[in-house]
């Protein structure tokens, strides 16, 4: 599978120094994505999913490990290599309220990346390109001179998408792009993102805590827990045959908008263990109903239990 992978991440680690020691935000995550596919990354707040996305893009430089994009190691890219990479790889932010400079209007916001990367030259060409981009993301051209605070969340997120698309990237990290939006607007943006992917063959890393959204948009899903990967497999496989105890608990905890679903909620007591100076062993052990002694002493290896289904758990056989 690594042969035709567009992006390959090997044993990526990102530690942040904090007063109490070292915060292991991402601790040895490996995965790969094929071109044109979507990898959903799910997990609870603080599990390191956003840090992972930023580390892949080099916005937070990785502490250890490798990020390989189209055969090139871009983990520590500098200068022109870094600039080129940023044209290929883009990010869409969670909060369309804070990721847009409130002093710029739509035209200025969308033309900024065009100017930085010298994609268009001259005022006329830039304006034409901005209009084209607004058309692509479904923003009426009458909003060209509006400021972000005058627009609703959905339209703001469309500006964010237009900005990301302006440099014509192949790969986009979507960091909770719909979490700040109301459901009816959320659906509009999800449809737009899926259309764009189809038209342009984009590759997405789609980071979210919303399992129904991730199921809708992803080809493959990776479940993260406290900086580590718990499980990764195809979307259908995850929902039909979850293996990791955390995945099972997570799936059972989602409130389903239907009154006919009878469910056995697996109660996960307690809270996520702190990722600051973590103890050796499985991060999930303290909440896991199946935890054995081994779980507290040894970090489980990621195993491929089925083709394309990776799980990191000691007790798969016992369960």
């Amino acid at each position: 599978m690594a042969n035709n992978a567009q992006l390959e991440v090997k044993n990526l680690k990102k530690y942040f120094p904090v007063p109490a020691g070292s915060l292991h935000a991402v601790d040895g995550v490996s995965f790969s994505i094929e071109a044109g596919k979507t990898l959903g990354v799910v997990g609870e707040s603080g599990c390191g999913k956003s840090t992972l996305g930023r580390a892949v893009l080099g916005l937070n430089e990785a502490t250890d490990g490798q990020v390989i994009f189209e055969g090139k190691d871009i983990t520590h890219a500098r200068g022109n290599a870094k600039k080129d990479m940023k044209k290929e790889m883009q990010i869409i932010f969670q909060d369309p309220y804070s990721s847009l400079d409130s002093r710029m209007n739509v035209q200025q916001l969308i033309s900024e990346p065009l100017k930085i990367n010298k994609i268009t030259h001259g005022k006329e060409e830039t304006e034409k390109k901005v209009k084209e981009l607004m058309d692509i993301v479904g923003l009426a051209s009458r909003f060209r001179l509006s400021y972000p605070h005058e627009l609703d969340g959905g339209r703001r997120q469309r500006i964010g998408i237009a900005r990301a698309l302006s440099v014509e990237p192949k790969f986009i990290v979507c960091d909770e792009p719909v979490s700040a939006l109301d459901v009816s607007i959320q659906a509009q943006i999800l449809n737009l993102m899926m259309d764009l992917q189809e038209e342009r063959g984009l590759t997405y890393i789609f980071i979210t805590h919303n399992l129904s959204v991730v199921k809708h948009i992803s080809d493959e899903i990776m479940v993260m827990y406290s900086g580590t990967m718990a499980e990764k497999c195809s979307c259908d496989e995850l929902f039909e045959n979850p293996l990791h105890p955390y995945t099972k608990g997570l799936l059972s905890a989602i409130p389903i908008p239907s009154i006919h679903v009878e469910r056995n909620r697996i109660h996960m007591e307690g809270e996520v263990t702190s990722p600051i100076n973590p103890k050796p062993g499985c991060r999930f052990a303290s909440r896991c109903p199946y935890a054995s002694e081994k779980c507290y002493s040894e970090m489980p290896e990621t195993r491929e239990v089925k083709a394309g289904h990776f799980v990191a758990c000691h007790n798969l056989e016992a369960m």
């Binding site: 883009q90 990010i91 932010f93 969670q94 990721s99 400079d101 002093r103 990346p113 930085i116 900005r163």
Partner: peptide, 25 residues
């Protein structure tokens, strides 16, 4: 703030970010 990070993600230089985003705000 995220919009500074966004400008970095587009490859904006420090001077660009300071002049266009930081100081006006």
């Amino acid at each position: 703030s995220e919009y500074i990070e966004a400008a970095k993600a587009f490859g904006g230089s420090d001077i660009h970010i300071l002049w266009n985003h930081v100081l006006p705000n």
